[in-house]
Amino acid sequence: MKRVYVNEQWCLGCHLCEYFCAFANSGQSDMARALKDAVICPRIKVEEHDGISFAVNCRHCTEPLCVKSCIAGALSVKDGLIVIDQDKCVGCFSCIMSCPFGALMPSDTGVMQKCELCTSNSAGKPACVQGCPNRAIVFEER
């Protein structure tokens, strides 16, 4: 399965990926309108320390700990993709505790949100990858 991989050597810490993610999942057609004056809540996060930076989103693990830990059955594996059913999520944070990459995070409605590789938004393919200026994240089969 194609996944998003990180080439941290090339990450500039520009944070564009976060904004493209937030926009892709906003359901709107104009970025300025979608994100103006908003506090964004992207599904990819740029980690930075000491001149090193890289962007992390869900790794879509083959043995996903989050799915195992979810008490409400909101997380499941669909064709290798880890998806969330926000209707079932009760906001218990178990997944957040169990994900070793910190890839799950609360959405603005309180229930969890996670990267589904832009399969369920209008972008169709990872918007973060498309927006990265330096190929620091790539979407490929490995």
């Binding site: 904004y19 300025a32 004056d37």
Partner: peptide, 13 residues
């Protein structure tokens, strides 16, 4: 300013 979303990309770059 109507389009700027304060992402600060310009500042970082």
């Amino acid at each position: 300013q109507q389009r700027c979303i304060n992402c600060r990309v310009c500042e970082r770059q």
